[in-house]
Amino acid sequence: MSIFIMLDVGGTEIKGGVFDVSGALLGGIRNFQAKAGENPDTIFENFCHIISDLGGGFPKEKLEGIGMAFPGPFDYEQGISLMRGLNKYDQIYGMRIPEELRKRSRKLERVKILFRHDVEAFARGVYRFGMKKQQEKVLCLCIGTGAGSAFLENGEALKKKTEAVPENGWIYNSAFRDSILDDYLSVRGLKRLSREIMGEEMDGKRLSELCSEKNPGALKVYREFGKILYEGILPFLDSFKPQALILGGQITKSFPYFGEKLEKACKERSITLIMEENTSLRAMQGLLF
């Protein structure tokens, strides 16, 4: 049986798991420290340690491939991080990750290593393993530190700019109100709203707790956030015309407090709305070769 080691690479932690060719998780998902602010040797040795740790219970000849889901900016074809000034992986800017890993571990010399944008990997994972019925056109949105997105057609990511799809399938830098979508559909956008309405910056978790207690200020913050989400996403629903919209990340847990307008818009357009909380699992499954 061939196995695949998959990593969802973040700036604070790296989540990893071992999968078989069918996409089944063999064991659980494990969390590791990212060490993203360290020097190159420490970063690459940490990757090798994680891969070795995850694959330790399996014969090394069974390892078919390694997949890594990375945020951008990144050269996914070559496996080169282009992150700089973000306080994560700055020290490995421009370095070829596969070469560096193979220098440090002979076990990886013949192993295929694949890289994908984290939201694209997530969208592909939901498409292949999280949908009751696969649809031709799918739009995926993950709201976290920013507005991550992916446009899929028959399971493949669309990256070429068209009238309906932005460059790379990324909506984050689309013009919106007085700046760009990323400033509004993000954790910082939510914090800004809470500061304006409640006089205090709060994250989604705290706002959800307050909403469950019927706090009027928190409920108003999420109502306003829901209007922004509706206004920001509607143009893409109308131009791309997806049959399904995937919403990912922790914020989906709070959808009942802000999703009414978007849910209604999807129903009017016969768009299946899919909420997927387990972003890391789906991202890893979306890395399968």
Rank of each mutant, 00 (worst) to 15 (best):
S2T: 12
S22I: 08
Q33N: 14
A34Y: 13
G37P: 12
N39I: 07
N39K: 08
P40Y: 03
E45H: 02
I50T: 07
L54P: 01
G56W: 08
G57E: 14
K60Y: 06
K62I: 00
E64W: 05
G65C: 13
G72C: 05
E77S: 15
E77R: 14
L82W: 01
N87D: 15
K88R: 09
K88D: 13
R102A: 02
S105Q: 11
L114R: 13
F115N: 06
V119F: 13
A123Q: 09
A123C: 13
G130W: 02
M131W: 06
M131R: 01
K133F: 00
L141V: 11
C142P: 01
G146Q: 01
G148W: 09
L152A: 02
L152P: 13
A157L: 04
K161N: 02
K161G: 00
A164F: 01
N168E: 14
A175K: 10
R177H: 14
D178M: 03
K191T: 07
K191P: 06
S194E: 06
M202Q: 09
G204L: 08
L207Q: 11
L207T: 12
E213H: 04
P216D: 15
P216H: 02
I228Q: 11
F236C: 10
S239H: 15
L245K: 04
I251P: 03
E260Q: 12
K264N: 13
C266R: 14
C266E: 12
E268L: 01
I274S: 07
E277S: 14
N278D: 14
